[in-house]
Simulated assay, not measured.
Amino acid sequence: MPKSPEDLFAYLDGLGISVRTKSHPPLFTVADSQALRGEIPGGHTKNLFLKDKKDNFFLVTVGEEAEVDLKQIHHVIGAAGRVSFGKPEPLMEYLGVTPGAVTAFGLINDTAGRVKFVIDEALMREEIVNAHPLTNEATTSIAGGDLLAFVEATGHEAHILKVSA
């Protein structure tokens, strides 16, 4: 059973990580979420759940405005050939979220370490990073360094790479 947002908040609290969360109507796209600008400061994320031809999975987190070359990203993230978007079933199985709610916080559900996490170096220049807390009905603000501490606590490595153009 995937973790709930409440489980996530308890986990973050247990790590001594302070976050702020704002509830809102469901947001499915970057365009939807841009309506909240001004209410939630910091860098806002766009998340790509990708799969290569050898069934390796990648969660790539970039700034919402970032442009990503999907035909070339495999060179950057270390994929075995070109990548495609992962299907909803492995997304739920590994990260415990549905399309539209993809988030770095989903790593809490990847206890087997099946997903490689890549975060764009440009996004890491933001003091605050905003992501869905396992649901697209809220946005959680976390300090960039605390996000990295969370990722490591889940047993993942945060690969900070130049992903965006």
Score class of each variant (00 low, 15 high):
130 N>K: 05
116 K>M: 11
149 A>I: 09
22 K>M: 15
110 D>L: 03
101 A>H: 00
54 K>I: 10
50 L>A: 04
82 R>E: 10
54 K>S: 13
142 I>A: 03
14 G>H: 06
46 K>C: 06
43 G>W: 01
49 F>G: 00
165 A>S: 15
99 P>D: 07
23 S>P: 06
165 A>W: 14
101 A>F: 03
37 R>N: 15
30 V>P: 04
149 A>G: 06
147 L>R: 02
20 R>F: 15
58 F>V: 06
47 N>H: 04
121 E>Q: 12
9 F>K: 09
153 A>D: 07
47 N>K: 05
157 E>D: 14
34 Q>R: 15
146 D>P: 00
149 A>L: 12
89 E>P: 05
129 V>R: 02
57 F>A: 05
122 A>Y: 10
96 G>M: 04
92 M>N: 10
107 L>P: 01
24 H>F: 12
163 V>G: 04
66 A>F: 05
146 D>Q: 06
154 T>K: 05
103 T>E: 02
36 L>E: 07
28 F>W: 13
134 L>Y: 00
102 V>E: 00
97 V>D: 01
129 V>L: 02
154 T>E: 01
163 V>E: 02
23 S>R: 14
44 H>R: 04
4 S>F: 08
49 F>W: 03
30 V>G: 06
156 H>T: 07
130 N>M: 09
133 P>E: 06
142 I>L: 04
